[in-house]
Nucleic acid binder design. Structure first.
Lengths: 221, 221
DNA sequence: TGATGCCTTACAGATTTCTGTAAGGTTTTG
DNA sequence: CAAAACCTTACAGAAATCTGTAAGGCATCA
């Protein structure tokens, strides 16, 4: 089993519950808990400099902001920063996020090793996940599977970028100009019109407000 | 100190962390943990029928739904049901909700005794809160105060309705007509224009898409 | 190869959004 | 009480959105 584990989780009650379980159910000797992403990254640096690196990172995705200034504000950023320093570290994400699209991208983009969905069996799953990841396998919470079955319409990256820009208040003309500057094609205002209109049909939206609202609520933007 | 406490919290990790703290820091003898609201209510009933009631309820607000059918799906409903059976029970809410308006209504409407905001010091606060409530005082997390100070812009019902309609794809003309049908005043398209434009300033939005997107992300719509 | 379908783009026109101005009404305040 | 501030409403004009038509490019397929 892993001997040295870093836990990044900002909720004190959750943090304690996890540490307790890792100690008692998995007999992990050295568990370092951190409540801020920046501090977690520092721990990684320190351990590397002492040639005694962490073997596993367990992290939440969302961290509350408070009076302490932080460079890193999310679990995804934390993973990215840590991977720059220590590419081989195993990573398990423990979060309440249950959108399969987002979780999928964690595996694909961030190359995480395990995903545990917080819930009534979150700790049991965390134990399982840790075992699996230790055996060089990946793990994700079984309930996620069910959600994937609900065929979710996938947005391609191009459309997604347009929608994000719209949600950020850009006009279609501005988006067109932005794409031209970035040498991305297609980029005409007309094409953007067509693309968005097609999304109206796909998602049953009456206009841009409606579409943006729906997609944010679906967690796609 | 309280001798018999009921904990309703659906996340296993959080649940364990809280039980651990109540046992070790507060020496509470009998802690009953439940992961579903319905089961929590049953515990209350059973305890009452045996003439050995719980003295304190600690509950979350949001409970994940899963394959188990439940009548009660939220902490607020749970509190209301329990209060019907046992009006004098003390109640502490432990949740990540940090909207002071909503928390305020918990004290006013549900007559709760304490509110603890989950976070980096959630458990310390829960200990404090339990002490205070035991002394027949109320308690709420200090950071809530701060949030109130950061004048959070509150939307009045009228503006909120307009925004919801916009997010649902209605045009301003349609909203105006809808208001006229319902005999709600003001209802002119012009006033709707003005109201929304003012919200642009208040929330720093460039246009309607931007505003709707921001407010959904803030959980206001 | 030619037909077909799909995508990009331009353009046009109707509608909607957004921003002003102005008039009239109500409330607040000194 | 009167001035000031605010709200509602109408209207107007510029900009943006939405929908359709049309032309050209590219890939597929029989």
């Amino acid at each position: 089993m892993f001997k040295k584990v870093l836990l990044a989780e900002d909720f004190q009650d959750t943090n304690l519950g996890i540490v307790d379980t890792l100690e008692n159910k998995l007999q992990i000797e050295k568990i370092q808990e951190e409540f801020y992403c920046d501090k977690a990254l520092n721990r990684i640096k320190q351990a590397l400099s002492k040639d005694d690196p962490f073997e596993l990172l367990i992290t939440d995705l969302h961290f509350k902001q408070d009076h302490v200034d932080c460079n890193i504000t999310s679990g995804v950023e934390l993973i990215q920063q840590i991977r720059k320093l220590q590419p081989d570290i195993k990573v398990i994400v423990n979060s309440m996020e249950d959108n399969p699209v987002k979780i999928n991208s964690l595996f694909k983009q961030e190359k995480i090793d395990g995903y545990v969905c917080k819930g009534r069996h979150g700790l049991d799953e965390l134990v399982k996940s840790t075992h699996e990841v230790y055996q060089n396998r990946t793990y994700f919470s079984p309930q996620i599977n069910l959600n994937v079955a609900n065929n979710i319409i996938e947005l391609e990256a191009f459309d997604l970028d347009i929608l994000k820009d719209l949600a950020n208040g850009l006009t279609k003309k501005e988006i067109s100009e932005k794409l031209k500057k970035q040498n991305i094609s297609p980029n005409s205002e007309s094409t953007i019109d067509k693309r968005v209109s097609r999304l109206f049909d796909e998602f049953g939206a009456k206009n841009t407000n409606h579409l943006v609202a729906k997609l944010i609520k679906l967690g796609k933007i």
